[in-house]
Design a protein around this nucleic acid. Structure first.
Lengths: 334, 334
DNA sequence: TTGTAGGCGTTATCAG
DNA sequence: CTGATAACGCCTACAA
């Protein structure tokens, strides 16, 4: 299967068959005119002797790497939310199907040097940027560089190819359901407002209230909650206000809230309703199953990769793709 | 910073400076004799005009890609255990420092085709294989291919470069502590026995008993538990046996156990002690904080990458590297 | 339909 | 110390 020895080159094949490299090249690539029998002969020899074109050489010749890059903020790996692994799975699947490989690039909000390096070094034909920010340095950099790229997350810049679940609508629907259950006072505990995703969710929250003509209380919205401590503090404030429903921005935040509420002997759902986003295993150990919006992140990755490949090939590509979501009603909002 | 236009080539630089490509190459690579002033002149021009060598060309010339591959079973991404992201972070850090990039390759137990492709296509200079199996097809394949590689997980094959935490010792220590607390009957709920890691942990469990001269009960060891249902079933059996201490093989399994125990109103630690491996956020929402063995997975990734780079460069590399662990005693085993 | 020759951007060998 | 020149393996006008 895999030979240890020196690999066969196109030249070897050509010599062995008594034809020119050009002919072999044409047989392999399918481009250019070539006699059907010669083609067959070459192809047969190739599969027989397991010849594989050298990607580096091919890349050098036509300025392509057959790699796509996946860029993400390193801190996305620090949180145990499984967003990145799932997306990778989807991306990798589509990429592999098209003979592409995936190169990972980890960056830091203040240090894009690795991204710059990958691009300058010509290591990828295009990139997928995980998560978008309000003031998105990486996206701006990519745009300036002229390399094809798509973001996994929405952006205000209409020039940018972007793919994401419809978080506005997802949160709008969730909020509506809760409001219609008669829960008039809903608190939100959200993450970093520099992440577009959190802004979108809040937008949906507002929309639902507007749709139903129900006022919301700005002081029940806690933003930029990024630690167990802040989450606990938010929970305290919420309870002091006698509110009995909380939407957690993601499963991690919700798990923090859950822990705090249990410590305080708050019964769920009797004393407090709780809803979350993702529906990951982070909440499996919870005593009460938690209502959540589910996203098919693998599908999201697949879609993003397809769009990127289109772009790389110079084909027309949708600039904004919104994917769906699913609401899973559980005990926590009974 | 990043130019949209055509990139500078070594030839451009050479012509502009009135020297030969060879000279420029020498200045850049530091190899070969070259006059100090010429060197300075070239280097200055280069940084001034932001010249970057083309990695593809370099690769073609010396048969190197400056990529390392990271291979993992796709199902490692299905579980929300954060092992992979953490390891990636460590690997990527060391790789980037040495101007290497990381290519992801997802495989399936029965389908190594993507791995074969990456290798045959010459896309990487070496690979890191995540997790080892008892009958390790991927490892065997890599070995046969002759490409440098290291496994993140131990292997019985002494020829293979392997890096891992000392799981035997970790579980031995954990078990000893529990035994010395007077918990004579300890149950184990473990995952797939085809994973070396689970075998090693069990080995440590046995050792601890032998060390202390305490017999263990084989019927309290549940292996190949890979779902919430099986975990719940194991918990049931364990409770029927009146055992009051369980070691869960990882945080996911432990979180399943935890949920089941809470449903059954079992008080922790009063009625049941519980210990786990990893100490990830999967257990943050647990009411009772859980005793666990902690591993520095980022460090593990860094170490593996270092070893691999040594191997790639043909330097001497340690064949077996065992990293440490940490025991975090918590409320669940009070 | 097929082949020749030159180029992609570096590195390495071997003279000068 | 420096510079031609030939690889590296593939692609693509342009010829034949």
């Amino acid at each position: 299967m895999i030979q240890e020895g020196k690999k066969l080159t196109m030249d070897d094949v050509a010599k062995e068959l008594g034809v020119s490299k050009t002919t072999v090249s044409r047989a392999v690539s399918g481009k250019g005119r070539i006699g059907e029998q010669t083609r067959q002969r070459v192809l047969e020899y190739i599969s027989q002797h397991n010849y594989k074109p050298n990607v580096m050489a091919k890349g050098l010749a036509n300025q392509r790497t057959y790699n796509i890059g996946m860029v993400l903020q390193a801190d996305l790996l620090s949180s145990d939310l499984p967003f990145f692994p799932k997306a990778l799975k989807g991306i990798s699947e589509v990429a592999a199907r098209e003979e592409y490989d995936v190169i990972m690039t980890l960056i830091d909000t203040n240090d894009l040097s690795r991204l710059v390096r990958v691009i300058e070094n010509n290591k990828v034909d295009g990139m997928i940027l995980m998560r978008t920010l309000q003031d998105d340095k990486p996206a701006q950099m990519l745009k300036k560089s002229g390399i094809p790229f798509v973001t996994l997350g929405l952006s205000d810049d209409p020039d940018i190819c972007q793919v994401d679940n419809d978080h506005v609508d997802a949160c709008r629907e969730l909020t509506s359901i809760l409001l219609l259950k008669g829960l008039k006072k809903i608190a939100v505990v959200s993450g970093d407002m520099n992440h577009v995703i959190n802004r979108k969710r809040l937008e949906g929250f507002y929309q639902a209230h507007k749709d139903l003509g129900i006022p919301y209380d700005e002081s029940l919205i806690f933003t930029d909650v990024d630690s167990q401590m802040f989450a606990a503090r938010a929970a305290d404030r919420i309870r002091m206000r006698n509110v009995n429903c909380i939407i957690g921005a993601d499963d991690l935040i919700t798990s923090y809230l859950l822990k705090k509420l249990e410590e305080e002997q708050v019964r769920i759902p009797e004393d407090m309703r709780l809803a979350s986003f993702h529906d990951s295993q982070l909440l499996t150990s919870a005593k009460t199953s938690v209502t959540a919006i589910k996203f098919n992140t693998e599908e999201l990755g697949r879609e993003a990769c397809k769009v990127l490949l289109h772009q790389i090939r110079g084909e027309e590509a949708a600039h904004v793709t919104k994917l769906s979501y699913e609401v899973a009603m559980r005990e926590s909002t009974k």
